[in-house]
Simulated assay, not measured.
Amino acid sequence: MTKRRKIFILYARFGEGHWQAASALRHSFANQGNTEIRLIDLLAESHPVLNGVSQYVYNKSYHVLPQVYGWVYEATKGMKSNSMFASWLHSFGAETLQRLVEDERPDAIVHTFPILVLPFVTQKTGRKIPMFNVVTDFDLHFRWVHPDVDKYYVATEDIGRQLCELGVDPSRVAATGIPIRPTFMSGTTGALAASYYDLTPSKPIVLVMAAASIPWTETAELSRKLAERCNAQVVIVCGRNRSLRASLSNELLTIKEITVLGYVEHIDELMSISACIITKPGGLTLSEAIFAELPIFLYRPVPGQERNNARYLASKGAAVICQTVEQAGKSVTELLEKPERRIEMRKALKALSKKGASDSIALDIARQLHIMKEVSLAYGSILIEG
């Protein structure tokens, strides 16, 4: 009987994307069978107080002082894995991970967040565990880079080239795309989705992903302009931010062309019937929009990985960066009034699209582990014969 494989997936709750990518991978590994998956928020498990404080500071710096967040991100972007600061960052959670490794003996560890504690644990235990990094942005920060990583799975060929330029062997890099929710594979028809949300398929739908970093009054103003100027239906998704949803619902209650929603599990349904999306440039949302070939408008991206994500997609013609309500309204109007503009953007999105990223990554990791096992057995046989 084949031994059941065990894999740890390490993530963090700094934003939704790292957890969503981890969940997508868990689903893909489960489909393979004979694999036990454990999702671990390592910082939360090992340092719950520090994790809470870190998330608070992250949210405040990200939303209140974005320039400071951006400066820190850019200042540390090129740090080496053996630098004192990188070693310090990658030491958090070491005791917890060491205990988990010794107790459960996983066959591999996958990261969807760059908290690379495993090399430190390897030094302590002397046991080498295969390590795989799934980079969840369209921008490469050196926190993801470490010589002990067995393979990197990245969003684009451009990031793959960056890694190779840093000395990573091409065989250790795969441009698979970023894992997205398995619901995107369900193929919900536009007619069913429109009926569910009480929308008219024949009238343009603009999907707006509301963000806490943007004042709700600004989101309301933008939505009004879109409904009036573009003669469009506007669907605003507020996620789990109840106060944001309440404020927007009260403000826009009388405008029948505007629908305000909270957290939407099957965002693929809304994307399938929308003409475009206005959002902040998080890696997961961008990957989902790219999969749906949905023209992207990025509203006031904050400094750091999101601004770099935005610049990358804009350089490819797949997204438009908008800094004001007026600019966003004008850009969306142009898209809706000029079919050729939408065709251009969808062509650029299709060029970036990577279908089945989660399944591809899970299958390749399984293949890598099989090869490593075969090599280990062959090497053991040579030693015995010698």
Rank of each mutant, 00 (worst) to 15 (best):
S287L: 04
A227V: 02
F184H: 15
A174F: 10
K347F: 01
I296G: 03
N34S: 13
E257I: 00
S272A: 14
L377V: 12
P119T: 09
A44D: 10
V145I: 14
L284H: 09
V68P: 00
T279N: 06
S360P: 00
F113A: 00
H63D: 11
D137I: 02
T96A: 12
L65K: 08
A174M: 14
I9N: 02
E326N: 12
N51T: 10
R311V: 14
A30S: 14
S23D: 11
D103F: 03
A155W: 06
G386A: 11
G17M: 08
N241A: 10
M1Q: 11
V154E: 03
Y196N: 07
L352S: 04
K256C: 08
Q162S: 11
Y69W: 15
R242A: 15
R346Q: 15
L42E: 02
Y73H: 08
G167S: 06
K6R: 15
R13G: 12
E257K: 11
F291V: 04
A24N: 04
P119H: 06
G317D: 03
Y56M: 11
T324Q: 07
L207V: 01
R342L: 09
I40M: 07
C164L: 04
W71T: 10
T254E: 14
G282D: 02
E344M: 10
L349C: 03
A86T: 12
N51C: 11
N133E: 08
R300W: 01
I277V: 15
A174S: 15
W216D: 08
T188K: 10
I236S: 03
K338Y: 06
N51D: 14
T279I: 01
R143W: 12
L166W: 11
